[in-house]
Structures are given as C-alpha cells and as structure tokens.
C-alpha cells in the first residue's frame, strides 16, 4: 500500500514547505500520524491533514501527490529512499540535497530543482526552472551526484557549479548551462543559450542538436579540437534510454565536434556537439 495525498485549494495561497513529506518516514505511519505531520504554510506551521486529503495506507516507500503543488518548497529535500510521485506541477527547490530514491514529477518544477543533489533520480515530464541541479543558494558546489532528467526545457544556469552526476534536458536550456561546472555530465537535446560552459573546470556538456550555433552559445575561450568519436557517449545514451529519456537513435556511435575549455579555468572540460549524420 502507499499514501495518496490530494491537495486542497489551500495549498496554492502561500509558500508551502513540504520538506516533511518523506516516503521512507511515511512507511510506518497510520492515517492519523500522517495527518499530524507538520508542514509550513507561509510563516506558520500547519498540519498535513489541513492541506491534503489523505488516502491509502503505509507499507511501501511510496507517496503520491495527486495534483499540483505550485507553491511548494523543499519537496523531497534530503530524501534517502523510496518513490515520491507528483501528478502535477511542483514549486521551488524540489529534491534539493536528495541522497537517494526517485522523485517523479508529471508536470513542471520551479527554481532550483535538484540543487546540491547527492544521489537518486529526479524525473520531470514537463519543464524545469532556472538553477536545475545547480548550487544551493549560498553554496559554491552544485549537484554532487545522482541523475536529473527533464523531458521539456530548462531555464538558466543548469548544473551551475555541479560537481558530479548526470543532467539530461529533452528540450532547450537557458543561458549559462554548465556555468562554473566542476565535473559531471549535462546532455541537452535542444538548443542552448549564451554562456554555455562559461568558467567550467572539468566535466562534459553534450549538445545533441546538430543545429546548435556554437559561436553564439560558447565563448571564444573554448578551443575547437575537431571531430572524434567518443565511445563513452553510447554508454551514457544507453543509460538515458533505459531511464525512459527520449534519445535520438542516430546519436549512438556518432561523431562529435569537441571544444575544450574553459581556457580561463583549467581547460580540461569539454563541449561535444553531436553530428547524427556521422554514424558509420
């Protein structure tokens, strides 16, 4: 059995702190205990039962929020295991500092989703706001591990200062994708905007759209090194495919244009632009 939480209209009135909704902690609770879990609405504490209608029972590490919680903050923060499913949209800082488990969002997520994430999977069927997988406000290190998949587009500063992990964007990404990246991998199927990889030390940004205007997106402090066939790419693409991320089959075994940089930093990061017509 699992818990199903149906949002009441109240939840859209003010910022709703959902940090207490943790699948592994809800497993052994009864309905009354779940209803008494303390959330935060604006500056005031509020019990979960006042914000959500509760159905189901414990037993599994599975919680479903059957609707949108657009004003939510900290949903799935520090989550360690289990599955948290949202059938609508989420607000800010979803899945920050998550260490394990899966957060599945059928709609879109707001600012800072997956910031400082340390493990687990955040899967978003809609769009993501800015700061996806980036540094938590006030921190110099972004996502440390784990996987973030966004089927739609993402805002600015995807993977800001990320240290490790994998981010894949099915649509386009905003300005500063991979800015100040320390390591890790970012895949973007659509277009990217200015400042891609600016100040990156290490790590890989893979641009899967062969029409990417690299001169506009990437600063001159990246050095074009020519074409080659990165074998590791197929391993990553296969993994993304296994996770349900839509991958253009033409990209398996394709050649890439490589740009080394950012040369104002260590210069051992890379931006790869895939050429789907190069598969032999």
């Amino acid at each position: 059995m699992s818990w199903k939480l149906i949002p009441r209209p109240l939840v859209d009135r003010s910022s709703l702190d959902l940090s207490a909704i943790q699948p592994d902690r809800f497993r052994d609770l009864d309905v009354d205990a779940v209803a008494r879990v303390r959330l935060g609405l604006g500056n005031e504490p509020i019990e979960l039962g006042e914000c959500f209608d509760i159905e189901g029972a414990g037993g599994d590490d599975f919680v479903e929020i059957a609707g949108s919680v657009k004003t939510s903050i900290y949903l799935g923060i520090g989550m360690k295991s289990g599955i948290l499913r949202v059938s609508g949209d989420c607000g800010r800082l979803t899945g920050v500092e998550a260490e394990g488990g899966t957060i599945d969002v059928a709609g879109s997520v707001g600012f800072g989703a997956g910031s400082a994430m340390r493990g687990g999977l955040l899967r978003v069927q809609g769009d993501a706001g800015s700061g996806l997988g980036g540094a938590y406000p006030g921190s110099s290190i972004g996502m440390r591990d784990g996987t973030i998949l966004v089927a739609g587009s993402a805002g600015d500063d995807v993977g800001l200062a990320m240290r490790r992990g994998l981010i894949a964007i099915g649509g386009s990404a905003g300005a500063g994708t991979g800015r100040s990246m320390i390591a890790g991998s970012i895949f973007v199927a659509g277009t990217v905007a200015k400042g891609t990889g600016a100040g990156m030390k290490r790590g890989t940004i893979v641009l899967m759209d062969e029409n990417t205007l690299i001169d506009e997106a990437v600063s001159p402090t990246f050095a074009a090194t020519g074409r080659f066939r990165p074998h590791f790419l197929a391993i990553y693409l296969r993994r993304l495919d296994e996770l349900g991320f839509a991958v253009d089959p033409r990209l398996f075994g394709c050649e890439c244009e490589r740009y080394n940089g950012d040369l104002i930093e260590r210069g051992i990061g890379e931006i790869l632009v895939c050429n789907p017509y190069s598969v032999t």
Binding site: L166, S185, R202, T204, F228, R229, P230, H231, F232, R239
Partner: peptide, 22 residues
C-alpha cells in the same frame, strides 16, 4: 585523462592519437 562516472561505474578516457581510449 578524463574520468566519467555513471552510477557505480567509472570510465577513464585517455587521449590517444586516433581520439581517445576508453
């Protein structure tokens, strides 16, 4: 050399004269 870590697996990409050895 470049390290890529995917889940529990780490791959080393070593630059060589025809591209890289993984």
């Amino acid at each position: 050399q470049i390290s890529k870590k995917l889940g529990d697996r780490r791959f080393w990409r070593i630059p060589v004269m025809d591209g890289e050895f993984t």
